[in-house]
Design a protein around this nucleic acid. Structure first.
Lengths: 250, 250
DNA sequence: TGCGCCTCAATTGCATGCAGTTTGAGGGCC
DNA sequence: GGCCCTCAAACTGCATGCAATTGAGGCGCA
């Protein structure tokens, strides 16, 4: 009967989940820009785990669409096309309308307080880095989703919100999120009031305006240049031709 | 300049994907019922790969919600609660309304033919096993999603459709999918006609009726007995008390 | 007979090792 | 000077091995 000095329930470890969370956060804060390389070794070394674990984590993130995995190639942070970004926002709108529909008039006092606290934090971070603002704004939506107590809805909203975050860093140049905060407050108010239709419409226009502010030009306005421009021309997505290489006759 | 005898594009291998697809199919055809154990060794042996690969595949399926992974325990086919099933259908309704909204009036002749062919196959399978009927019905919806050319939408619709499939095997007893086939035909007709509002409403009522036919009773009507019944009483989802074990005073 | 403890086979968590593929940098050739 | 070829380093794909945890059967005790 060893004294068992509280070493039993210690760490559930879950190293994979740890790495996933870290990478997710790094990605949405743009510490890792789209296209950034993610070699298994480096990740493993950085997090003090073996390649096996890093690899597994990359697999999970790829399933979420945050990472692109090509066989025998280094994993990279996903670079969604403009169309994919638009699609993600469309899906997000529907999912989040569902969230607020379920939540309207059903929030507890504690939940309302939590939401207000969060928006206050958004307010305070307004002068900080854009990255933090974006993260907080995203987390507001995830916080809402969490309150539905529907694990599935939480997962989908989180995933698609992260993806949208990713596209923001790709396609929106200056990022103006100030007004978004007021829209968050309006959503909370409508939720408390219990006006289902109103809050659904608010959420719709909120996300729609974020999307349209961000996804302005279908034409890539400058970033990543050649790669992006050539992407649509690579038929099967397989191997874009190098730079000055001309495809010559067989 | 080797002749390169077409050995280059041969097998991309992708053993993980292979196993995932196989398991997914086995699950939705109810060859693997909810709660079925999925030991890594056995899977690896069965598919001729190492545990590493089997493990990775299980991780992917867990991310999709088809498999439950508990630390240090054997993976099992997911057993969604009744509430989760209901949530999945709610999400599915919104996603598939989006699908048909995007598709209304935009189908090519080839696509229409493909859809009709599929429904014909559903018709022919009507006398076969329920499992095949369910699979075909699900694949109809995934086929629709595919036609949106939105990879994200395809992924979410597929996932949530598989999850719903899973719940059908749990909560619906006899399964009556005959009328569903006619509803599929009606949806195709409305899509061709291009009536957005009509087709969205059709899809809504179609899925709603499938859900309500399947998810009849919030009370577990019989299956899996004690485990299911006790589940809601396990506060943190952690470790349901054994059978005749009484929690005694400290 | 029944209840609890103990032990051990089964199984997972994770790291490491080896083989095959890709990358990109240098050198030779035009 | 530019192109191509070659080769080695870097990296991924996968299997295997070892330690830790689980849970199930067996043994002892009441």
């Amino acid at each position: 009967m060893a004294p068992r000095p509280a070493s039993k329930p210690a760490e559930p470890s879950d190293k994979v989940g740890l790495i996933c969370r870290a990478l997710r956060r790094a990605i949405i804060e743009q510490a890792l820009a789209p296209g950034a390389k993610l070699p298994e070794d480096s990740l493993g070394e950085r997090f003090g785990v073996s390649r096996t674990i890093a690899r597994h984590a990359l697999g999970q993130l790829a399933a979420e669409g945050l990472v692109e995995l090509r066989r025998n190639r280094i994993a990279v942070v996903a670079t969604p096309s403009w169309q994919e970004a638009r699609d993600a926002f469309d899906i997000r709108i529907e999912l989040e309308r569902l969230v607020v529909r379920q939540l309207a008039g059903k929030l507890t006092k504690a939940q309302i307080a939590e939401l207000n606290t969060h928006v206050d934090a958004e307010d305070r971070a307004r002068d900080g880095s854009d990255a933090v603002s974006i993260r907080l704004a995203t987390e507001f939506h995830i916080l809402l989703a969490n309150m539905t107590n529907s694990p599935i809805l939480v997962r989908y909203v989180s995933e698609v919100a992260y993806r949208c975050c990713l596209t923001l860093s790709l396609y929106s140049r200056p990022h103006s999120s100030e007004c978004a905060i007021n829209e968050h407050r309006a959503i909370i108010a409508a939720l408390v009031k219990g006006d289902e239709a109103k809050v659904m419409s608010l959420m719709h226009s909120h996300l729609d305006s974020v999307a349209s502010r961000a996804l302005v030009a279908p034409a890539p306005q400058r970033g990543r240049d050649l790669l992006d421009i050539l992407a649509p021309y690579a038929e099967e997505g397989e191997r874009v031709v190098k730079l000055p290489k001309v495809v010559r006759a067989r």
